[in-house]
Design a protein around this nucleic acid. Sequence first.
DNA 1: GTAGCTTCTTGTCAAACTGACACAAAATTG
DNA 2: CAATTTTGTGTCAGTTTGACAAGAAGCTAC
Lengths: 232, 232
Amino acid sequence: MSDWEAPRVLLAVDLVILTVRGSSLQVLLVERGVEPFEGALALPGGFLRDVEEDIPAAARRELEEEAGLADEPHLEPLGVYGEPGRDPRGRVISVAHLAIAPRLPEPVAGTDAAQAWWKPVDDVLSGRLELAFDHRRIVADGVERARAKLEHSALATAFCGDTFTIAELQQVYEAVWGAQLDPRNFYRKVQAAPGFIVPAGDERRPGNGRPARLFRAGPTDSLNPPMVRSAQ
Amino acid sequence: MSDWEAPRVLLAVDLVILTVRGSSLQVLLVERGVEPFEGALALPGGFLRDVEEDIPAAARRELEEEAGLADEPHLEPLGVYGEPGRDPRGRVISVAHLAIAPRLPEPVAGTDAAQAWWKPVDDVLSGRLELAFDHRRIVADGVERARAKLEHSALATAFCGDTFTIAELQQVYEAVWGAQLDPRNFYRKVQAAPGFIVPAGDERRPGNGRPARLFRAGPTDSLNPPMVRSAQ
DNA sequence: GTAGCTTCTTGTCAAACTGACACAAAATTG
DNA sequence: CAATTTTGTGTCAGTTTGACAAGAAGCTAC
């Protein structure tokens, strides 16, 4: 074993960037500009730039280069995908990350070289949209992570802007979970969770009906009691 | 960028193997036989054997080679730890896994070359025990994962043997959470969770007092309603 | 300006769940 | 057989949930 040498692998970073647009949960996809899978839809991502680059730093770099999201959205490691044979260029280990972007009305700022679009995750999960590599599984894992974290953490606020109404927050829950919630019970629940949201002045934002109070994300990240997704 | 070549890194697999012994949560540690950190305590693990080896396969191989756990315990990916400089031998990316072993009275079957011990996780988390590399953080993340999963999944049954009493299951919760639970409410709760545990014959196992009914793990992995760890 | 519509916010109420605890049941020990 | 220990069942008050009524506060149409 003294002359044995550990194998070396290529390290990539892939991003599952989620947002809520309208009433649907969407994921950012790019068109691949190089082989393999040239022209196919894929998650934004790329190889480590050099052997000294930190993994979170690489994720933030790709977030800016490929998605044009310079401001810091929520970003967390999601998992490792390294099946042999998943990439014809050799043994590639991909470290997937989950990013949450606030509502962006624009169809995504133009990116590096390739084009990028927001696509409904339902189209990806149902197979209506084909993705390169094993990216469909990565999206599925990212969505499931987001769904689970909405129950016990304040992740939902990352989908919103700096300030938001309770109804907007509810739309996030409904889009991510794909379920309808009662506005009145939702209102009661989020207010009761200590530290989840705090009033942002008594300003209001006009809509169609009665104006709503504005809130911003509170200090605590863990929700107790949790939000429950049970019977519809 | 055409003559640019992606950097290659070393890939390692580390294992956080947890079990409950007596009333404390313990983790399996080995004494390192080679530099760096020779002689120090560390998590079992090692490099990928060859460039074609699958990551879960490598985790199972280390589980058997270094921990002597040939039968299949619960095993799941935990996270990636790849900070530059964490290993003097070069850029090493470690894929940590969480394994749950049932109660083993023996102080661990003798392993490959080095020795192995069960150590209370409290000693690791408090810093009373020094670990090589960033393994203390990995243990902390593994323990937190286990604590969280006990709430919403049937993971607790992985700590038990094939059949177990409700009191034994409660000891698992108490050891992992580090909290006391009311036996009568616990009894009611686990019975009410559909598919969590199912009666295993009407056999019983003598103890000191009244004999207890035996159960085995049920079909469902997700607990609804969840077990809650709140007030002490 | 008033009627009508929309959305936000506050209540109400029965059913379910939780946490604390009394107590019966079934074994072992002295 | 009495004492002890642990398992299993029941009770009960306080809290939370889910469904829904109704008031409050804006906009639009006539």
